[in-house]
Design a protein around this nucleic acid. Structure first.
Lengths: 328, 328
DNA sequence: TTGAAAGCGCTACCAT
DNA sequence: ATGGTAGCGCTTTCAA
């Protein structure tokens, strides 16, 4: 250790850079001075040979998608503030890619990994857990054992969406889903269908090819070319909703909300833009992020549910003008 | 090392997981088997005690912004593909935050740091360089010594923007800039002004409070309330342009491109949305990302410009319909 | 091909 | 308060 060339023992300089250490003011001064001169910086990676690495891995796909970007933004900020260092693993969302990423995670001795998309295989999660790693799954309700789960109350939102559409006087209610059938998307769909069925309503189901703006646009083009198109639709994602609105308006001259009511989900920034003013459900990203870091920070978590730990957050309805407020 | 409990020496297992190592087929088999059984994974962090860490830090702010998200997406993917691990440092863009982030970078023994926003202080960059770290600055032309720079040819784009506006028959040309005067934004402004001045044109300058959609919207509200508003404006950013368009349309009933021509910069996904169809300049993100990883990958870079290394990329004009194609 | 041993930068423990 | 020492997991000489 080069810095000790400036007077003292290596222990002394180590102590200088450790918080709860006893070191004289004078020694510390000398050490700091020498370190400064030599451009010395503690090697945190070597530190981790003895203790925790403080590394948190974020496994994520579709980083450009507004919700994802927002989630990653929140998470990286908060993790940083909590003194963690965040490694972003940008993958496809298929199991193989996610597994690969999770394996890397083990190599870096991450204290924890947060999976934002895709689902790793049970086996791999087990070894991660066995290696003392925390695994937290966001928005994927597939009940892997030992993981911490955080998810959204999709059921309530779906029911509310139906309610809003009916109250707006929509006669032919529809739902726009994505061919990418991720757990949360599927749940929104099923709950909506369920609620409709309870109300004795039939629902026009439309499936977009992917979960993107373009796919929403394409879906609109298809659905409004048919006879008996819907006049009120719940889109499982804002991106889908925005594309759908644009398709309905630009291709068919439909007016929103007069001819067509649209509800989205996520409350991405674009949903608030003047051209859309989409009524939607907001993901409480801030709360979710806070919860995740508290999960990773509170080392002792004694009073927890034994097997499967799940936190459910409430999406909040954001009322804008893509739905008629009063019976039409 | 636990894995060696299964027959051989620690050297053997080390060799098993190193590529160019001589180890018998039999030994390797035993080792792999044992490792599998014990859930063993090489600790890459310990590895770095002897060699390079393979860690690349990305210093970035405003991660939710579409261009940024896109850039980070590209970069993380490509770095990963090149076997690097990417630590994202999400900061504010003021110098203090960036400096703090850069310091962290030293602690993690990053091989390289890529700065996407904000500018670190010269001194800090020097020590990073001195510690054998590569520093690459994206889109900030402030000529720090020893850094690799990659930037955009803003001048050409600005000139072309003016040309397009004039060709569309705009009589009162304007530019929408941001109060956040980052180097590339300023350059776009100055080049545009310069080109206009060369053409003997006066330009209506409008300054938005930040570089966001909302700020663009606000700017439109202000500028069209005045007498003699512009009928063709170059916005230094797509986000600004989109907000500006919405403001002009929703508040003043202006039609784009009939009453107002708008040009943006970045070609974010939203610029292509039906509600906007913005004519803009695309940042060649793919090329930039490729260049960055090649910079970090080609360990030997002998034939380089001595002091300041700069790569300049050409934005490409994307023609859509927010500008009239023919003299109006 | 293999094993023994040294050392990478660091901190914890034990003396002093 | 300080210094010495061991050891974290790994790779890499050097001998065998």
């Amino acid at each position: 250790m080069v810095a000790e060339r400036a007077g003292v023992s290596r222990s002394a300089v180590s102590r200088t850079f450790t918080d709860g250490a006893s070191v004289s003011h004078e020694t510390r001064r000398k050490v700091i001075e020498a370190a400064e001169a030599l451009g010395y910086h503690v090697n945190h990676l070597a530190r981790q040979l003895r203790e925790r690495s403080n590394i948190v891995c974020l496994i994520v796909s579709d980083l450009t998608t507004p919700v994802r970007a927002a989630m990653v933004d929140r998470l990286t900020r908060k993790l940083q503030a909590a003194g963690k260092i965040t490694v972003v693993l940008n993958t496809e969302s298929d199991e193989a890619s996610v597994n690969h990423a999770l394996k890397l995670t083990l190599h870096y001795r991450a204290d924890a990994t947060v999976v934002l998309s895709g689902t790793p295989s049970t086996g791999l999660v087990k070894t991660a857990l066995a290696n003392g790693q925390q695994v937290v799954l966001i928005n994927r309700d597939d009940g892997l054992e030992g993981c911490e789960n955080v998810s959204l109350d999709n059921a309530t939102a779906a029911r509310e969406a139906l309610f809003l559409l009916r109250r707006a006087g929509c006669l032919r209610v529809g739902i726009l889903v994505s061919a990418a059938r991720t757990p949360s998307l599927v749940e929104r769909e099923q709950r909506f269908l369920e609620a409709a069925s309870n109300a004795g309503l039939s629902v026009i189901s439309v499936e977009a090819e992917t979960t993107t703006y373009r796919a929403g646009l394409g879906a609109a083009k298809r659905v409004f070319a048919r006879s008996e198109p819907p006049d009120g639709v719940f889109c499982v994602t804002d991106l889908l909703a925005l594309g759908f609105m644009d398709g309905a308006r630009s291709e068919f001259g439909l007016r929103v909300p007069d001819d067509l009511c649209v509800i989205g989900f996520d409350n991405i920034e674009q949903a608030s833009w003047e051209a859309y003013r989409l009524t939607t459900f907001e993901q409480p990203l801030e709360k979710i992020a806070n919860h995740v870091v508290s999960l990773l920070t509170d080392v002792e978590a004694p009073a927890q549910t034994p097997d499967r730990d799940e936190a459910v957050f409430e999406p909040v309805a954001v009322w804008r003008r893509s739905v008629r407020p009063h019976p039409g």
